[in-house]
Nucleic acid binder design. Sequence first.
DNA 1: CTGAAAGCGCTTACAG
DNA 2: CTGAAAGCGCTTACAG
Lengths: 336, 336
Amino acid sequence: MAGVSTSTVSLVLSGKGYVSDDTRERVQKVIDDYNYRPLRSARQLASDRTGNIGFIISDIHLSKSEAFYSRILLGAELEARNHDVYILISTVGMNIEIPKDIPRFTQSRDVDGIIIAGSVPKKLVRYLHNRDIPIVLVDFNIEDLKIDSVIMDNRSGMKAAVTHLIDQGIERIGFVGGSYHHPSIRERFEGYQLAMERAGLGQIARNPDFYYLEDSETTVETGKVGIAAILKKVTDLQAVLCANDTTATGCLLQLNKLGKDVPGEVKVVGFDDVNYAAITQPPLTTVHVPKVRMGVEATKMLLDKIEKPEQGYQTRLIPVELIIRGSSVPVNGQDR
Amino acid sequence: MAGVSTSTVSLVLSGKGYVSDDTRERVQKVIDDYNYRPLRSARQLASDRTGNIGFIISDIHLSKSEAFYSRILLGAELEARNHDVYILISTVGMNIEIPKDIPRFTQSRDVDGIIIAGSVPKKLVRYLHNRDIPIVLVDFNIEDLKIDSVIMDNRSGMKAAVTHLIDQGIERIGFVGGSYHHPSIRERFEGYQLAMERAGLGQIARNPDFYYLEDSETTVETGKVGIAAILKKVTDLQAVLCANDTTATGCLLQLNKLGKDVPGEVKVVGFDDVNYAAITQPPLTTVHVPKVRMGVEATKMLLDKIEKPEQGYQTRLIPVELIIRGSSVPVNGQDR
DNA sequence: CTGAAAGCGCTTACAG
DNA sequence: CTGAAAGCGCTTACAG
């Protein structure tokens, strides 16, 4: 229709190679007028780029995690749209067999790269990494593997929380966490200890009476059990930092049951700022994690990696922010 | 390798046409031995089936809705896997322009059909429906359009809730809801009125003093405002049914603030059974909606429709189940 | 029951 | 700067 060959149209479409401005405009007009869209499958077949990226997440995380990982997915999708890339999603169980249960799209090369959100079986990551597929991890990492990742700044978040409490003249601060194998959870505990140390309260943070760690997926129950265990040993506990909002919710429930006033007797601080943090009683002070942004960054990094596979690996640390609500400060409004 | 033509291999792969058992086995063995996977893009190009289905959800629902829709997505993914189909996900805003903002995969025919989860702009559905793409709606419908859908049994759920309360000798039962335009929310209100009517309590359910309806997205705030409004007119309210767990949570918070004992003075029942229903204080009695299963059913229906486009439209009603927790029955354990 | 051949709609060297 | 041609890896009538 524009009186040129398909080669030329292809060049206009991709923006590569040389086309005279005149021809380019003419072709573009026809494209616009007829709302022409190149067929993806033909493009894929001819170019060996799929224009898809895989998004792998454990079924547990997708269904249970309080819209944490689904917000990351949302961010990934928003950014993918900007680049006209599709996201193929695949859930995996935590007890998978390799290679039987690996996501299909990795078997048939249907994606150009993969985002892995949250914790998945390590052997899956190793397997994919060995197959030389570009990967970006979000809120996960594996020590001995150099894989690009997007991580929230867990240590700074914990430091802000500790400082917030110390500024109120509080010293006897405990910690409740779980799933010590998840890197973020571990970093949060380390951040707690480090910040306490810096404030001259290392003795407390190093005293096992003051913390409770459970090596399993964090649940509300973890929080309940954890705070109860600490209070048995430290009856005059003034505050508790939690590995995430889920455990913090458990602490809140248990403290309520024990008749301890929050924040009067014990202050509670969570981590993540998931949607129900604002509806607990009292509303939960917590460290806000920009989940959508993490998804956006992950997609950017992955597309970058796909474009330039040779560049070295990198980790992006996403800043977090303490959100102060009723669970850590004296009441002043009517929101209790 | 098996000494046959590619045509024959193709026939073995697809299971169509006639291939002798002998040949079939020989080919299959080579396929297995070499772990051969047909390239999707080539297949798509040659067959004009993409093997993809689109999953459309509003960005609000994906990120805010307490893992309700992400569990539906999970179900869809699990079933898609069984059929070796990929899910392409796309979020849409509630204020989109047609055709500028319609999901990309519908523009370039990259999917064979579409699942729409929850409420999205009606004009989007109309547009897609007119383009003759197979569609299945989940927890949504549009009155004047005959589109396949998977809906939870809202009326029965409400009936179970009403019965549960009446069985305890309670009569003064109110309702708090929102987003009257969402079909499920409307059905729940209708279910409440109908069940009350059947129990001879129609006068109460028809009295506007006893219910609060808000024409917007349901939030925790809706619940707070709603229960407060009802209590002003009906000081001796005995129970409140809610359009969903989110509004129920708001009711719980407000009742607590007003010093009303739950379930002693007022009983509260939600709907959906999302993950935080069990961590409210007291734990929330609610109607369990099998979200994963709804996603599974939607995928099944869609693939069916793609296979046999000529068959008439259908609606699948998914059964629900009342889950009784502390917010509607006298305390008997220590879980308060 | 099986094979030869065309064709799906693009991209990409290559030649000019 | 532009076009002719090959080729990506399948599927599907069609012939035998």
